[in-house]
């Protein structure tokens, strides 16, 4: 395959995100819903990079968004009067990446030496464990969390602070989604991707083929975690100007990540995008029709997908387009 041809599937991804962005920008009053959808897509894209490509489930995934949101909150909270201006955001994103990198390296180094079920067990307490460490040892203000609405105003000025919360933060969520999708495609087209496919299908056979499975699992795990950390920094900290440990380590974000990936198709490039939009739109309407019932409806949907359509929407579509010109674009 020629290089240009290899990366053709990026076109539908970019077109879709551009369309979503245009929908939010051009139609008055739709920015919030468009950015909410982008959040689900970004969450799915980042999660898919690990779960979809390795077949491992990380039940503590939200912890990476959580530490990422602290990464952004801390510099704004403590350094708002230092005249750093927008550099604070750069520092925040950097710290978010560093925090999630360290946490994922620590968890991954232990858990990724273990196989499937044991891995899932090891991750099940990561989000709660971290939340209770922050609350128990009273780190970073403990259970009171960090509230930095006024610090944002001090640091950036009233107008800029409002613009950051209402537009920039959402714009950065789009950026995370697109970067995550591009990273996925790059992985898929390089040795990492083939190694991950092999170990997802048969880990022992992969080892015998010369694949250092732990190395590749950790690579995917850390990439996925760092993207989640940056997502937490922008979608939560910058947007809402507060971080509470009880909110940012809430397991239902992990549930949402799983739903987005499964609806679209685990291990596909377009899947999390399609899944995120299906989930976001149906959640939006369910909130109107049956408020409070969203999870009760989506949990059986997860089971139904696993039992009846394990390939997800894009997985099925992929099979349909084999032998047609679309084949090159949909993966």
């Amino acid at each position: 395959m020629k290089n240009t041809e290899k990366y053709l599937p990026v076109i539908p991804v970019l077109v879709a995100y551009a369309a979503l962005l245009a929908y939010g920008v051009l139609i008055p009053g739709k920015w919030q819903i468009a950015s909410q959808l982008a959040f689900y897509c970004a969450l799915g894209q980042a999660f898919n990079l690990f779960m979809g490509m390795t077949g491992y489930v990380d039940f503590g995934y939200v912890a990476f968004l959580g530490v990422g949101s602290y990464g952004m909150a801390l510099p704004i909270y403590h350094l708002s009067d230092k005249g750093l201006g927008l550099w604070l955001i750069v520092i925040g994103i950097f710290l978010a990446a560093v925090f999630s990198f360290i946490l994922s390296l620590a968890v991954g180094a232990v858990a990724l030496r273990l196989r499937g079920a044991y891995f899932a067990i090891a991750t099940i307490g990561v989000n709660e464990g971290f939340r209770f460490l922050i609350e128990g040892a009273r780190i970073w203000n403990g259970s009171e969390g960090l509230l930095f609405f006024l610090h944002m105003r001090t640091a950036f000025g009233k107008q800029t602070a409002t613009a950051i919360s209402n537009y920039w933060a959402d714009g950065m969520v789009f950026a995370v989604a697109i970067v995550a999708a591009i990273m996925t495609l790059i992985y898929m087209r390089n040795k990492v991707g083939y190694a991950l496919t092999a170990l997802r299908e048969d880990e022992d056979a992969a080892k015998v083929m010369g694949i250092n499975v732990t190395k590749y699992k950790i690579t995917a795990f850390i990439t996925s975690a760092v993207l989640a950390g940056i997502l937490g920094a922008t979608a939560w900290s910058l947007k809402y100007s507060y971080v509470y440990p009880s909110d940012v380590f809430e397991i239902h974000y992990t549930v949402e990540a799983i739903i987005n990936v499964l609806l679209g198709g685990a291990g596909t490039l377009l899947g999390p995008l399609v899944g995120g939009i299906i989930y976001g739109v149906s959640k939006y309407f369910l909130a109107i029709i049956l408020p409070g019932f969203q999870l009760l409806i989506f949990a059986p949907v997860i089971i139904a997908i696993i039992v009846l359509f394990p390939e997800g929407t894009v997985g099925m579509l992929k099979k349909k387009v084999i032998g047609t010109p679309l084949e090159k674009y949909i993966i």
Binding site: V110, A122, G125, G129, F130, F132, E135, G136, A137
Partner: peptide, 19 residues
């Protein structure tokens, strides 16, 4: 230190250590 929350953190650490 909040003993209640720390105990919960401790059980998470125990899990990782045993594994």
């Amino acid at each position: 230190v909040e003993p209640f929350a720390m105990t919960r953190f401790f059980s998470f650490v125990m899990l990782l250590v045993i594994l």
